[in-house]
Amino acid sequence: MDILLQQIINGLVQGAIYAMVALGYTMVYGIMGLINFAHGEVVMIGTLVAITVITLLVGAGVPPAMAGACGVVAAAAVCMIIGWSLERVAYRPLRNAQRLAPLITAIGCSIVLQNVAMMVWGRNYMTFPPLIAKTQFEIAGASFTSVQVLILLVASVSMGGLLFLVYRTKLGMAMRATAQNPAVAGLMGVNANRVISSAFVVGSALGAVAGVMVGTYYEIAHYQMGFMLGLKAFTAAVLGGIGNLAGAMAGGLLLGLIEALGAGYIGDLTGGFLGSHYQDIFAFAVLIVVLMFRPSGLFGEKTGDRA
C-alpha cells in the first residue's frame, strides 16, 4: 500500500498548512464571532513578502537558510501589522453593527489586499527560492522530502507555541475569558480591545509562517493564491468546530488527509467516472456531511436551544 502511505504523508503536510491558517480564523471567531474573510489574503501577502526578502538576501550572498529565517520574520512582521490594522481600522468601528456588516467589510478588505498585492507584485506567478536542499527520503515505498519534514516541524513548534500562549500566559487567559463572556471578562478588568487585537496579530503571524510554508512547498506564489487557501482553511476550522483551537488543528489535518486520499482514490472509487480534478469537492462534501450530523463541527461545543 505504498500509495496509501504516500497520500497520508502528503495529506499531513498539506493539512499542517491548513491548520496553521485555520487557527487564524478560529481565534478571531472564537473571541469576537467574526469570519475574517481577509485572512487568506494576509497569508498571501506573507508569502509574497517572504519571496521578495529572500530573493534579495540570496542575491546579496546570504545563505538560503539564513535568508529564509529573515523572510519568515519579515513576513510575520508585515502580516502582524496588516492584521492589527484590519481590526483597528475596519472591524472595530463595526463591533455593534448588524451581523452582516463586518462580513461585507471583510470582503472589501479581501478585495483591497488582493489588488494592492497585484499592484506591488504584478499578476504573474512568482517562483519561491529554495531554502534548504531538497533531499528525498523513502520509507516503505513512500517518499518524502526534507521540505515536508521541515514544514511539519515548524508547524508543530508554532502550534505548540500557540497552545502555550493561550493556556499558560496571562494574555491567553484573558483571551479565553473574553471568548467565554466578553462582558464578564471586561468586568474582571480584561481589556477586550487588547485581547481582540492580539488575536488578530497572533493569527496573522501564524498565517505568515503558513504562507512561507506554502511557498517552499509549492515553490510558486501568486496574488490570487490566498482565496482558495483561505477558503479551505476556513472550512477546516468549521469542520473542527470553529472557535476551538484543537478543533482547527484537527480539522486542518483531517482536511489535508481527506483531500490527499480523495484525490488518490476517487478514480478507483467511482470506476473512473470522476477524476482527481474533483479533489476540491471533497473538502466541501465532507464539511456538509459532518455538519449534518454534528451541527457544531467535530469538536465544537453543542449550543442547544436555551429557553
Binding site: L231, Y278, A283, F284
Partner: peptide, 28 residues
Amino acid sequence: APTLKLRGDYLAIVTLGFGEIVRIFMNN
C-alpha cells in the same frame, strides 16, 4: 432540508461549499 438547522455562520459555509461543488461539477 438537511442544513437549515445549522446556526448562521455554519449555514454560510455550507452554502458556500455547495456553490463551489456545483461550479466544480460544471467545470468537469
